[in-house]
Design a protein around this nucleic acid. Structure first.
Lengths: 108, 108
DNA sequence: AAGTTATGTAGCTCTATGGCTAAATAGCTA
DNA sequence: TAGCTATTTAGCCATAGAGCTACATAACTT
């Protein structure tokens, strides 16, 4: 994909893909489970998942027969957050999430 | 455009349009001034501006011969912010901007 | 091994997108 | 009015995008 940011925004430009991300908010789902939520064909969903994966917005985990997809929240937050902070820094605040806290204290 | 959100995300999917928004961050610019910053033709820029305007991300002001475009910051912040707050609410915080404070007190 | 389920890949079609040039419009300026 | 500048509109082309069906893979289940 062109640059990194373009990959993310292009991925988000499709309503089906945005809905997939939203569906993944509550936890991972197998490809088929995702497909069953939409009126379009399995292969089409498969391609949407490929696009999301290429953009780094989802990850896959293979187990048995299935392929489970899950949201990469930080990727999404960082991409959009970066753009927002450049174009309208006054209106949105990124909540910084430590990548690796030096010593894990009480991480709820 | 499909729904509102799709209009915004599709508009943002193009790097030239994102750069235009970024250029407008420092204040309004005439169409020609914008065009002169890119290696592509005037008419192409004009169409990009039409897309941004349709998405509600820029506004135009006509003065004399010129058409000045300016950023609609809130539109951008609210669209992306809404989506982010649905998909990964933990990571980004919208800074609420009062539309019309009933009585302006000490707004920190 | 054979069959079944879960997904992805190939290849086709149609529409949308983005770039270009040429021409139209709008509004100054002389 | 004639002409100049700024910008958009029209129309063309090439590429990308999204949907579909048919087929190929992968991995379980008998």
């Amino acid at each position: 994909m062109a640059d990194d940011q373009t990959g993310v925004f292009k991925a988000l430009a499709d309503p089906t893909r945005r809905q997939i991300l939203q569906d993944l908010r509550d936890g991972e789902l197998a490809a088929g489970e995702i497909a069953s939520r939409f009126p379009i064909s399995g292969p089409s969903i498969s391609r949407h998942l490929t696009v999301l994966k290429a953009a780094g917005l989802v990850e896959e985990r293979r187990a048995a027969n299935r392929i489970y997809y899950s949201l990469v929240e930080e990727r999404l937050a960082v991409s959009l957050g970066n753009f927002l902070s450049v174009v309208c820094p006054e209106q949105v605040v990124m909540r910084h999430k430590r990548k690796k806290p030096s010593r894990t204290r009480s991480t709820p």
